[in-house]
Structure formats: structure tokens, C-alpha cells
Design a protein around this nucleic acid. Structure first.
Lengths: 135, 135
DNA sequence: TATTATCCTACCAAATTAGTAGACTATTGT
DNA sequence: ACAATAGTCTACTAATTTGGTAGGATAATA
């Protein structure tokens, strides 16, 4: 399951996608409209800025906005940044790989099955973007 | 990601699948062969017994064994019992559904996408069984 | 009735998650 | 220049989940 942080991130990004091209949006506005705790949201947006997804402006007329065209931001990227691995096991993760101890990957049935699951998921989330979140 | 508990469960079930039809297997044997902390494994196996996946015998010659043919035990069932929801959001979970607050499911792009992901995963884990774990 | 082995209740420590506090810094309008 | 605005940053805290452990109770067998 996606963490609250990740779910909040998606809500905020959806809002910013709707407002794309209309200038900066206040954290407080996103917080109110999407019912996300203000200070928690601050942290999340700041992190997404550091990860190059968002950009911001300070002072009057400031706020947050998407750094790139929402059609160019993959769902997979956001899941990884806000929630971590997409795969169900460390030993089948592409971006967070860890070898499993006491288990030969070459002859582990679970390994093979979890690769299948991973790929089925990636097929979707690598081919959808923020743009696909708005109706 | 699957929890340690869930990963241990799969290792133990793989072992019991290999030994299927050969009588009870000691917890201590599974623990040693699969390198799983003994007392933790006890809890896991006991839970799987209560969930009707395993059965056991006490006393000399006792141990644990699969209650049903491994070809009849779906991967999806084990994931749900040992790790919880398969879906990425409570509002798209079939077995652990929770309505999301402040969000109309009818017009939530994330909702629709997460249903797709869920179904792609289910397509695999509902159609594979413990039998498919052995080489 | 001793031995074997699971069953059960309860506990514990570490890690993660979810959220808060408050001071600091940069920008803008007057 | 300076007040107001709005993001930045460090640090903390509380609650929950995870990953175990301890030790006695119970049941089956020999």
C-alpha cells in the first residue's frame, strides 16, 4: 500500500497538474483544497522540489508549480520518490535492488513470479503520467 | 514490499510444498533449512494453521504440513494472509476496501489507474499456486 | 509418565510513519 | 528601507508497525 505521504503527494500533484501553466499555487491553498495537514505537506513538496519534480517561488505571488509538463512526469517516478520500491521483493527491484541472502535467485520460484508481477505493474505506471490523473 | 513475515512464510511454504505428501515436518527443520528465526517461524506457521493453509501434529513424529494440495493454494491468498492488501490504495482493494475520505471515486484519476495496477497483479497471483514455486 | 513438539499469551526493541514547532531566508510591494 | 508574504530548514515527537523473544501450557506418543 502507498503511504499517506505518497497519497498526499499524488493529491497535491493532481491539483498542481490542474493548475499547470497558471503560475505558483500556495501550499496553504493545496492544503485546504485537498485536506492535507499543512506542515506535512510543506515537507512533501519541498522533497519533490529537491527531486526536481516541482519548483517554487518565495514571497508574495509565490507558491509551488510543476517544473515540467505533466505529460512528461511518469507515475513510476513519483511512486519511487514518495513511496520507495515498486517491486514486492528487494531481489527483483530495479531501482532498489538488494540480493537476498540464503537464496539462489537462479532457482527461486518466488523470484521469477515476483519479476512477472513487477513487470505487469511497470507496464502500467511507466506508461502513465500526471496528465493521466486529471479527468 | 512484502514484510519479512511474508517472505519467511513463502520460504516455509515452499519447503512444505517440496515435502508435500511425506508427513509432518518439524518447525525446527524448516527454521534451520530456510534460516528463519525459530520462534518467529512458530508464530507464522501457527497463524497459517488458523487460516486453514496448514495443519499440524503434536508429539513425536509431529510437525507441520500443507492442509491442501499445493496446486490448490493461490499465491494471492498467501499474500493477503501474510502481508495484507495487494492493491496500492485502500479504495481499490477488494478484500481490504476502505472508502477514501475527501475524494470522489467517480472522478479520481488515481483511483482508476490503481485499479488497473491491481488487476494486472491479480491476473498473475490469482492464477499461480504454491506448486508454481518449486523448480 | 517421560519425552517430544506444537500452542498460546504476553512481552519487547527497533524502525518507520505521520505529523508538529519554530526560527530562518528570500521576494515583493509600498 | 522595510513590512508583509511565503517557502526553507532543522529538529523534534507520538503513534503504529515490524520483527522478533520468553516461557509456560497442552496434546500426542512410546
Amino acid at each position: 500500500m502507498l503511504s499517506k505521504k505518497s497519497q498526499y503527494a499524488f493529491k497535491a500533484l493532481t491539483y498542481l497538474t490542474e493548475k499547470y501553466g497558471q503560475g505558483p499555487v500556495l501550499i496553504s491553498e493545496i492544503s485546504k483544497k485537498k485536506k492535507i495537514p499543512l506542515k506535512f505537506l510543506e515537507n512533501i513538496l519541498l522533497e519533490l522540489k529537491k527531486e526536481d519534480i516541482l519548483d517554487s517561488k518565495k514571497g508574495k505571488g509565490g507558491g509551488y508549480f510543476l517544473k515540467k509538463d505533466p505529460a512528461k512526469v511518469k507515475m513510476a517516478t513519483i511512486i519511487r520518490l514518495t513511496n520507495g520500491p515498486i517491486a514486492m521483493l528487494p531481489c527483483v527491484s530495479l531501482y532498489f535492488y538488494e540480493r537476498c541472502k540464503n537464496c539462489d535467485e537462479k532457482q527461486c520460484g518466488l523470484h521469477d513470479l515476483m519479476i512477472e508481477v513487477r513487470d505487469a505493474t511497470l507496464q502500467i505506471v511507466e506508461n502513465r503520467t500526471l496528465k493521466d490523473l486529471i479527468v
